[in-house]
Write a protein that binds this DNA or RNA. Structure first.
Length: 424
RNA sequence: GGAGGAGUACCCAAGUCUGGCUGAAGGGAUCGGUCUUGAAAACCGACAGGGGCUUCACGGCCCGCGGGGGUUCAAAUCCCUCCUCCUCCGCCA
């Protein structure tokens, strides 16, 4: 959410910056009117409340002295009615204003390239050698079928499309990966491990920006106002919702493994085969709460942590600075890590690392105090996948495949795989 | 799921029956001071925070006793509703 004062005072400038996102911003037109109405109603209501407070005190005095206060009471009855009328209207206006503000995306940082869509994302760097195959490399779902480690057909029977059973060394590989990644981030990068709830309430979804705008993208529980988490970002960021943190505690860094659930509404026909786009997938997520002045350095740090996982796995990737048209709703800046997939002959997203500045913190009320006497300020929040596990499995299968259809297990994972060197 | 009980400021806790000098007693913790070579103890002092409106500013005002609504001239106190925690029962990995 944007700061209402900032929006009021820099309306033109913010409108122009948001326009680069290419979204419909017609709702913004109402802002000035609602903002003016709101402040006007507050002033009228508060003026009467002040009067009521004073007269009520007088009535209390008279009552205590056993004197008659009927004239005042009649007068205040009228004032009370007026207050109620103003407050009813105020509630209405504030509701509208709140809805409007919750729909406005974050303002892109100045270092974000201006562009319409993914075509205009800017490559920041590339890592690793793309392997030359002496044979025709197979897509990961074929490799998985041959080695019998993934079962999409039975998952479709048991649940539906875009679900999968991992079996045998496939299941083991998945487990090895998130253990490897958690260990890396906890032991080497200083994160605290968190295992979060997979269901969250509406306030949490609003806090990180999934709601109210993207309700169709997530799974909702029928009987309760609970949602299946689309990412551990949601529960972990909301851990500190409505809290005032100590400056000494910052930065706070959490690494969380979780399953993630996405409805993939609107993705019909895309990535229908394999592990790339599932309704349920595993992910290790990194979340950081930092001081505002540090957040862009922290974004580089966070991104480097995610990259480290790819480097240790020896998977070639590139880092993309997402342009204004391809930024997430809540992000001020976002790097995508894209891993090389031989069968696609392209790089595919395997991690998103974002700086939300105070956008989520303002929605979720996450603040900190610099010292005992200072007023609370909003923290900056960041998060990034470190990494999406299913896509990492796909990348390993494809990049490590042999001509005979077997897959070499990356060295760093072997201790997690009971010393096995190959899936066959 | 059923039956009870409870949520008050950093923590504990009084007030709620019987609405009005409660813009919330009293402890503890914390901070400052006296005393002391230093510390402890004792004593003295400070200690509601947060949000909003308004103002160039000083300041003024409004809201705040789990959240939200209502009754009333007036609500921590009465009513409704939701949330959370505790106890017992049931069910259950």
């Amino acid at each position: 959410m944007l700061d209402i004062r900032r929006l009021r005072e820099n309306f033109q400038e913010i409108q122009e910056k948001l326009a680069h996102r290419g979204e419909d911003l017609s709702g913004l037109d109402e802002f000035a009117e609602l903002d003016r109405k709101r402040r006007n109603l507050i002033q009228q209501s508060e003026r009467l409340k002040k009067e009521r407070n004073e007269v009520s005190k007088k009535i209390a005095e008279l009552k205590r002295e056993k004197k008659n206060a009927d004239a005042y009471i009649v007068e205040m009855r009228n004032v009370g009615d007026q207050i109620k009328a103003f407050d009813d209207e105020l509630r209405e206006v504030e509701g509208q204003l709140q809805q409007l503000l919750l729909q406005i995306p974050n303002v892109p940082h100045e270092s974000v390239p201006i562009g319409e869509d993914e075509e205009e994302n800017v490559e920041v760097r590339k890592w690793g050698e793309i392997r030359e195959f002496s044979f025709e490399p197979k897509p990961h779902w074929e490799l998985a079928a041959e080695t019998n480690i993934l079962d999409f057909e039975r998952a479709a029977k048991v649940t539906g499309s875009r679900f999968v059973f991992y079996k045998g060394l496939g299941a083991r590989l998945e487990r090895a990966l998130f253990n490897f990644m958690l260990d890396l981030h906890i032991d080497e990068h200083g994160y605290e491990e968190v295992l979060p709830p997979y269901l969250v309430n509406r306030m949490s979804m609003i806090g990180t920006g999934q709601l109210p705008k993207f309700e169709e993208d997530v799974f909702k529980i029928r009987e309760e106002d609970y949602f299946l988490i689309p990412t551990a970002e949601v529960p972990v960021t909301n851990m500190h919702r409505d809290e005032i943190l100590e400056a000494d505690d910052l930065p706070i860094a959490y690494a969380a493994y979780s399953a993630c659930f996405r409805s993939e509404a609107g993705a019909a026909g895309r990535d229908t085969r394999g592990l790339i786009r599932q309704h349920q997938f595993n992910k290790v997520e990194l979340v950081r709460f930092v001081k505002p002045e540090d957040s862009y350095d922290e974004l580089e740090k966070l991104t480097a942590h995610a990259e480290k996982a790819l480097q240790l796995l020896k998977l070639p990737y590139r880092v993309m600075n997402m342009c204004t048209g391809d930024l997430g709703f809540s992000a001020a800046k976002k790097y995508d890590l894209e891993v090389w997939l031989p069968s696609y002959q392209t790089y595919r997203e395997i991690s998103s690392c974002s700086n939300f500045e105070d956008f989520q913190a303002r929605r979720a009320g996450i603040r900190f105090r610099r010292d005992q006497n200072s007023r609370p300020e909003y923290v900056h929040t960041l998060n990034g996948s470190g990494l999406a596990i299913g896509r990492t499995v796909a990348a390993i299968l494809e990049n490590y495949q042999q001509e005979d259809g077997t897959i070499v297990i990356p060295e760093v994972l072997r201790p997690y795989m009971g010393g096995k060197e190959k899936i066959e």
